[in-house]
Simulated scan of single mutants.
Amino acid sequence: MIDVFANPLFGIAITLLTFQAGSVLYKKLNYSFLNPLVVSTFLIIAFLLIFHVSFDEYNAGGSVISFFLGPATVILAVPLYRKISLLKENAIAIVTGITLGSAAGITSIILMCKAFGLDEMISTSLVPKSVTTPIGIELSTQLGGLPAITIAGIVVTGIVGAVMGPAICKFFRIEDKVAVGIAIGTSSHALGTTKAVEIGETEGAMSSLAIGIAGLVTVILAPLLVKLLM
C-alpha cells in the first residue's frame, strides 16, 4: 500500500474520483453547500487522515492537476469574448465596481485582523485572499506574509464565495447579470467564477473579467492600504 500511495497516479486518481463523487452528489441533491470542490476537499482530507497518508505523498500527483489550473483558466476567456459588446457598454461601471470591491476586501480583512488581535504577519498574509493564487502568493511575499497562509485564505475565500455568493446576491435582490458576475469574480476569484459560469453565460463572462482586473487592482492598492491601516 505504501508503494501505491507514493505513486503520482494515486494523487491524480483520488482527486478525480472525489470530485466526480461530489459532482454526482451536487447534481442529485442540488444544495449549494455541497459544491463538488467542497465535497472533494473533505473526502480527500478524510482519506489521508484515515489511511495515514502524508500530504507530500498525495501531492506527488495532486501537483500535476494543480499545474493544469493555469491553462484551464484560459477557457474563461471564451464567454467573455462572446459578451465583449456588453463589456464595452458597461466599461466604466465594471472597472469602478471591481476597484471599489477590491479595496473593500483589503480594508475589511485588515480591520478584522486588527479587531481579533492577529499579528501583522498573519494579517498581511490574508490581504490577497480574494485574488487568484499566483498573484496572491507573489503579493503575500512582497508584503512580508506567509504564502502557505495566503493559499489557505484564497482557497477558503473561493469556496465560501462559490457556495454563498449566489445566495447573498439573491438576499440583497441583486438581479443584474453583470453586477452578479462582477461581485462573485471580485470577491472569490476563479473558484467563485466556476459558480458564476453555472448561473449563466453573462455572469461567467463578467466574473472571469473581474479575476484579472481585481488582481491588478489588488497589487496596486494592497501595499498602500497595508501601510495606511497597519
Score class of each variant (00 low, 15 high):
Glu198Gln: 08
Val178His: 05
Gly181Thr: 04
Ser130Trp: 01
Ala152Glu: 01
Cys113Asn: 15
Thr107Met: 07
Ile182Val: 15
Ala72Glu: 10
Gly97Pro: 09
Met112Leu: 15
Val197Gly: 11
Glu89Lys: 14
Ile174Gln: 04
Ser125Ala: 01
Lys170Asp: 15
Leu69Val: 14
Leu139Gly: 09
Gly117His: 01
Thr124Ile: 14
Gly145Gln: 10
Ala103Lys: 03
Pro147Lys: 09
Thr107Phe: 00
Gly62Cys: 05
Phe171Met: 12
Val131Gln: 03
Val78Met: 13
Asn59Glu: 13
Ile135His: 08
Ile84Asp: 05
Leu126Cys: 13
Gly70Phe: 10
Glu138Pro: 01
Ile106Ala: 00
Val178Ser: 11
Ile149Ser: 00
Val155Ala: 09
Ala72Leu: 03
Ala77Asn: 13
Thr202Lys: 10
Gly61Glu: 08
Lys88Ser: 12
Gly101Leu: 08
Ala179Arg: 10
Glu89Tyr: 06
Gln142Asp: 14
Gly185Leu: 01
Thr150Gly: 06
Leu143Cys: 01
Ser188Gln: 03
Cys113Thr: 09
Leu143Lys: 08
Leu139Thr: 03
Ile149Glu: 00
Ser85Tyr: 08
Thr202Arg: 13
Gly181Lys: 02
Ser102Gln: 11
Asn90Trp: 03
Ile109Ser: 06
Ala196Cys: 10
Cys169Met: 13
Glu201Asn: 12
Gly185Met: 04
Ile92Trp: 14
Ile154Gly: 15
Leu76Asp: 12
Ala103Asp: 00
Ala91Asn: 06
His189Lys: 10
Tyr58Cys: 02
Ile137Arg: 06
Met164Leu: 15
Ala60Cys: 13
Leu111Val: 12
Thr193Tyr: 04
Ile92Asn: 14
Glu175Arg: 11
Ile109His: 01
Asn59Ile: 08
Gly200Tyr: 01
Val180His: 06
Ala115His: 08
Asn59Cys: 01
Cys113Glu: 04
Ala183Met: 05
Ile135Ser: 07
Thr73Gly: 09
Phe171Pro: 07
Ile84Cys: 03
Ile159Asn: 08
Leu86Glu: 11
Val197Asp: 08
Phe67Lys: 15
Ile98Gln: 12
Pro147Cys: 04
Ser108Thr: 07
Glu201Tyr: 09
Ser187Ala: 14
Lys83Ser: 10
Ala167Pro: 08
Ala190Met: 14
Ile137Asp: 02
Phe172Glu: 10
Thr73Tyr: 12
Gly153Thr: 06
Leu191Phe: 15
Thr194Cys: 11
Thr99Gln: 11
Phe67Asn: 13
Gly105Asp: 12
Thr132His: 03
Thr99Glu: 11
Leu118Met: 12
Lys88Trp: 06
Leu76Asn: 05
Val156Asp: 09
Ala104Asp: 02
Phe172Ile: 15
Val156Ala: 12
Thr96Ser: 09
Gly61Tyr: 07
Ile122Phe: 08
Lys83Val: 09
Gly62Asp: 04
Val178Lys: 08
Ser130Cys: 00
Ser140His: 11
Ile92Asp: 13
Gly200Gln: 05
Gly70Pro: 06
Ala190Ser: 11
Leu86Cys: 06
Pro79Leu: 04
Thr193Gln: 02
Pro128Gly: 14
Thr141Glu: 15
Pro134Arg: 06
Val163Met: 07
Ile154Cys: 14
His189Met: 12
Leu86Thr: 09
Pro147Thr: 10
